[in-house]
């Protein structure tokens, strides 16, 4: 499957805020949440179209790896976008946002687009964090904000795609160094005439032992 760009995302936030469900909901919409079945996954990829260009999103959930500092910092560094998720029915997940954000800002490249997501918007009756609070936090820290529901799929699509749009705009503005894969952006195989030796573009058979990037 060819694409113009590949964007790598990470999803961060406290455990239980529904990160992996959001991911699955976006990458595989066919999982209709019925019977109160919550299904999530730690990795997914999906093709989207922006500006009539095919863009592939690869989303990596970092859940369960917080214990290792080397892992989190590498994840942050390798991503072009991050979804910072909290649970609107649990105030503490909102309170921890600053810590997550500090971490992200410290380890990521400065251009990483961060979207703030208040998840579980379907559980209005149990809401503990007002939408305005999320908005205010986002405004203060320069993030894009959205409330979503992995359950009803409300805004899930938009959250991922809007983030991609913002990354795409940054590429157009020349902010991102797209030839540097460490930024979490990769040019599609047929789109990189300037750099045909781009590693991992689909030709190398043996992946082991090839030089460090």
């Amino acid at each position: 499957m060819s694409y113009a760009y590949l964007f790598k995302y990470i999803i961060i936030g406290d455990t239980g805020v529904g990160k992996s469900c959001l991911l699955l909901q976006f990458t595989d919409k066919r999982f209709q949440p019925v019977h109160d079945l919550t299904i999530g996954v730690e990795f997914g990829a999906r093709m989207i179209t922006i500006d009539s260009k095919q863009i592939k999103l690869q989303i990596w959930d970092t859940a369960g790896q917080e214990a290792f500092r080397s892992i989190t910092r590498s994840y942050y560094r390798g991503a072009a976008g991050a979804l910072l998720v909290y649970d609107i029915t649990r105030r503490e997940t909102f309170n921890h946002l600053t810590t997550w954000l500090d971490d992200a800002r410290q380890h990521s490249n400065s251009n990483m687009v961060i979207m703030l997501i208040g998840n579980k918007s379907d559980l209005e009756s149990r809401r503990e964090v007002k939408k305005e609070e999320g908005e205010a936090f986002a405004r203060e820290h320069g993030l894009v904000f959205m409330e979503t529901s992995a359950k009803t799929a409300a805004n899930v699509e938009e959250a991922f795609i809007n983030t991609a749009k913002e990354i795409y705009e940054k590429i157009q503005e020349g902010v991102f160094d797209i030839n540097n894969e460490a930024n979490g952006i990769k040019i599609g195989p047929q789109h990189s005439p300037t750099n045909p030796s781009l590693p991992g573009s689909g030709s190398s058979g043996g992946s082991q032992g090839s030089g460090c990037c």
Partner: peptide, 20 residues
């Protein structure tokens, strides 16, 4: 661990996570 030096950073990270 065969992939520990894979050119794709996310793969390398996954390998490290796994070894740990």
């Amino acid at each position: 661990i065969k992939f520990f030096n894979h050119p794709e950073s996310m793969v390398r990270i996954a390998v490290r996570t796994l070894t740990l």
